[in-house]
Amino acid sequence: MGKITIEDLKKIKEKTAGIVSQREGKATVTIRVHMGECGIAAGSRDVMTALLEARAEAHRSDIMIVAAGCVEKCRNEPMITIEEKEKATVQYGNLNPEKARQIFTGHILDGRVQENFLMSGD
């Protein structure tokens, strides 16, 4: 095994930053990707991957992305639920990786609810 470089250490730090934020309760946003049987069959794994990539590209360790169970709205899968501190919980449905990235950029980074993908809000 070769020597570990500074770049290797930076990559490890980036990968673990989200996990540490989650454990310490520093997350300001939680994105729940619903991964019940229907969600997985409809493509929620690809949605999860797109969101994880978008978070990494944005260098945002305060955003927690987690797998969640079924919410019994199968016809709307793949779905995500976004929970932000001091804001209403929002659900988006009938997603694909491209729509998930639009939601990440528009809702999470720019603070604009993406009404064209919106399911419900509290």
Rank of each mutant, 00 (worst) to 15 (best):
P78E: 05
E37Q: 15
L95R: 03
S61G: 11
V71M: 12
I65T: 06
K73I: 04
V47S: 03
I82W: 01
K87H: 10
C38L: 13
P97M: 08
K11C: 01
A67P: 04
G93H: 03
C38N: 14
A54R: 05
A27N: 11
T81N: 05
E72T: 14
A54H: 00
R75Y: 15
V29F: 10
I80Q: 01
K73S: 03
D46E: 14
V71A: 09
A17I: 01
F104I: 02
S44F: 11
I63R: 00
E98H: 12
T30I: 06
V90L: 09
V33K: 02
G106W: 08
G93F: 09
A56F: 04
S44D: 00
A58H: 10
N96P: 02
V33S: 06
K13I: 10
G93Q: 02
V20L: 09
E37K: 15
T16L: 04
V33A: 05
Q102P: 00
E84L: 02
G39C: 14
A56K: 15
A41I: 13
S61D: 06
K13V: 10
C38K: 14
I19P: 06
E77F: 11
R60H: 01
V71C: 07
I80D: 00
K11Y: 07
T89I: 14
R23P: 02
K13D: 07
L95F: 03
E72P: 00
C74S: 09
A88Q: 11
K26L: 08
H59F: 03
D62E: 13
K10P: 05
R45Y: 15
E14P: 04
K15I: 09
Y92R: 13
M48R: 08
K11D: 12
E14Q: 11
Q91P: 00
L9V: 05
R60W: 01
R45N: 14
K87W: 00
K73A: 05
K99Q: 12
I19N: 11
K10C: 02
P78N: 01
R32N: 12
Q22W: 13
E98D: 14
Q102N: 15
T30M: 06
R32Q: 14
G106M: 03
R32H: 11
I63E: 05
V29Y: 13
T30V: 08
K11I: 07
M35K: 05
S61T: 00
V66C: 03
R101L: 00
P97E: 08
A42D: 08
D46W: 08
H107P: 05
K99S: 14
L51R: 10
A67Q: 13
V33D: 07
K26E: 07
A88V: 07
S44E: 10
H59E: 13
K87E: 04
K13G: 00
E37H: 14
E53W: 07
S44Y: 13
G43I: 11
I82S: 05
A58S: 06
P78K: 08
M64T: 03
E86V: 03
I65A: 01
E83P: 09
D8E: 15
V90M: 05
R45A: 14
R23W: 10
A27I: 01
M48E: 10
G69R: 15
V71N: 14
P78M: 08
A42R: 10
F104R: 04
K11A: 11
C38P: 11
T89E: 11
K85E: 08
M79K: 08
